[in-house]
Amino acid sequence: MAATLKDVAEKAGVSIRTAGRALRGAGPVRGEVAERVLAAARALRYVPNAAARSLKQRSSRIVGVVTGSIGGTEAGQRRMRMLEEAFRIRGLHTLVGALPGTFGELENLLREWNGLVSHVIFLSWPAPWDAAKLRGYPLRFLFLDCGPGLEGFDNLLIDRPSGIRAAVHELIHAGARRIAHVSSPAAVGRHSGFHAAVEANPAVETFTIETEGLDFRHGYQAGPKLRQLGIDAAFFDTDRMALGFYRYAHEHGIAIPSDIAVAGFDDDSACAYAIPTLTSVAHPDREAVDRIAAIVTGPAEAPAKTEILPTRLVSRESSANRISYPKSPNKGDV
Rank of each mutant, 00 (worst) to 15 (best):
F235P: 05
F235W: 09
F236R: 07
F236P: 10
F236Q: 11
D237V: 03
D237G: 15
D237I: 06
T238L: 03
T238E: 06
T238H: 09
D239H: 03
D239I: 08
D239R: 08
R240G: 06
M241C: 10
M241S: 04
M241T: 07
M241A: 08
A242S: 02
A242G: 03
A242Y: 06
L243A: 11
L243C: 07
G244C: 05
G244L: 00
F245C: 04
F245D: 03
Y246C: 08
Y246E: 04
Y246F: 14
R247K: 15
R247N: 15
R247P: 09
A249Q: 14
A249T: 14
A249L: 14
A249M: 15
A249E: 14
A249V: 14
A249D: 15
H250K: 13
H250Q: 13
E251K: 07
E251V: 05
E251Y: 10
H252E: 14
H252R: 15
G253W: 07
G253C: 13
G253H: 13
G253E: 12
G253T: 10
I254T: 15
I254H: 08
I254M: 13
I254Y: 11
I254Q: 07
A255T: 14
A255D: 11
I256A: 05
I256F: 13
P257R: 02
P257S: 12
P257F: 10
S258G: 14
S258Q: 13
S258P: 01
D259V: 12
D259H: 08
D259G: 12
I260Y: 04
I260D: 04
A261R: 05
A261Q: 09
A261T: 12
V262Q: 09
V262F: 07
V262W: 00
A263K: 02
A263S: 13
A263T: 09
A263C: 11
A263F: 09
G264F: 04
G264K: 04
G264S: 13
G264W: 01
F265V: 07
F265A: 06
D266S: 13
D266N: 15
D266E: 14
D266W: 06
D266Y: 10
D267V: 03
D267S: 12
D268F: 10
S269A: 15
S269P: 09
S269Q: 13
S269W: 02
A270S: 12
A270E: 12
A270Q: 10
A270F: 15
A270H: 02
C271R: 02
A272E: 14
A272L: 12
A272W: 01
Y273P: 06
Y273L: 04
Y273N: 00
A274K: 08
A274C: 07
A274N: 00
I275T: 14
P276C: 11
P276I: 11
P276G: 06
P276H: 03
T277P: 03
T277S: 15
T277A: 13
T277N: 06
T277Q: 11
L278C: 00
L278G: 01
L278A: 08
T279M: 09
T279D: 11
S280K: 05
S280N: 00
S280E: 06
V281R: 05
A282L: 08
H283R: 05
H283E: 07
P284T: 02
P284V: 00
D285S: 10
R286L: 06
R286A: 01
R286K: 03
E287Q: 11
E287H: 07
A288P: 03
A288T: 03
V289I: 04
V289R: 04
V289F: 00
D290L: 01
R291G: 02
R291F: 02
R291T: 02
R291K: 01
